[in-house]
């Protein structure tokens, strides 16, 4: 009890634990723990054979956090900024530090605009987005969709029902918006 000085004894002794659990206690000594101490100065241990890495060529302007003093010598080149989402994201990086909420909210906004841009663009390709196949729901048969979810306690059942609405909601809203606009155009054309 915390109301007295002694710590409660564990239910099993070290010998019992050693007999039951392979390797029990082999890392009891902090010296055997590879991340102890947290910082261990040993620049020769990493395999790096440079003091500062060669610089990767910047083939197109690369956005960076304004908390960095320079573009890092190596960086990812996947999915460079494009379109309106690119404008939004570039603004987030160029104007706001990582400490500002605006930085992250602009990036979240950029993500949503990016999704809309790409969904629309996909309809001009031979492989338009397909929310049925891309959500993987076709895997449900054969992977125990009923018994995995029901007849047992699962906390996520309370909100799992929301997922289809989160996925389909923007599509349904977009469809309604397109229908409304189209009907208004038709009405105007007819006079």
């Amino acid at each position: 009890m915390p109301y007295t000085a002694q710590k409660p004894e564990p239910p099993e002794s070290p010998d019992e634990l050693r007999a039951r659990i392979p390797g029990w206690g082999v890392d009891s000594d902090p010296a055997d723990r590879p991340s102890v101490p947290k910082e261990r100065f040993d620049p020769g241990a990493t395999g790096a054979h440079w003091e500062f890495p060669d610089r990767q060529e910047e083939l197109r302007p690369r956005e960076r956090s304004i908390e960095h003093a320079m573009l890092t010598p190596v960086f990812g080149t996947a999915q460079p900024l494009t379109g309106l989402s690119g404008v939004i994201r570039r603004r987030a990086y160029a104007r706001y530090s990582e400490g500002r909420l605006a930085h992250w909210l602009l990036l979240v906004l950029g993500d949503r605009v990016d999704a809309i841009e790409n969904h629309l663009a996909s309809f001009a390709t031979l492989r338009p987005d397909n929310p049925i196949t891309e959500t993987g729901v076709l895997s449900e048969p054969g992977h125990r969709p009923i018994s995995s979810r029901f007849g047992k306690k699962r906390a996520d059942l309370k909100h799992m029902w929301m997922d289809p609405f989160l996925v389909a909601g923007p599509w349904i809203a977009s469809g309604i918006a397109v229908a409304v606009v189209a009907s208004r155009v038709v009405k105007r054309v007819r006079g």
Binding site: E39, A45, P53, F75
Partner: peptide, 20 residues
């Protein structure tokens, strides 16, 4: 990178030379 301030101290997940 293996050579920045953080990598030299074993904090590989905090490398300063790879994430602009």
């Amino acid at each position: 990178c293996g050579s920045c301030y953080f990598c030299a101290r074993g904090l590989y997940s905090n490398c300063h030379n790879v994430n602009p």
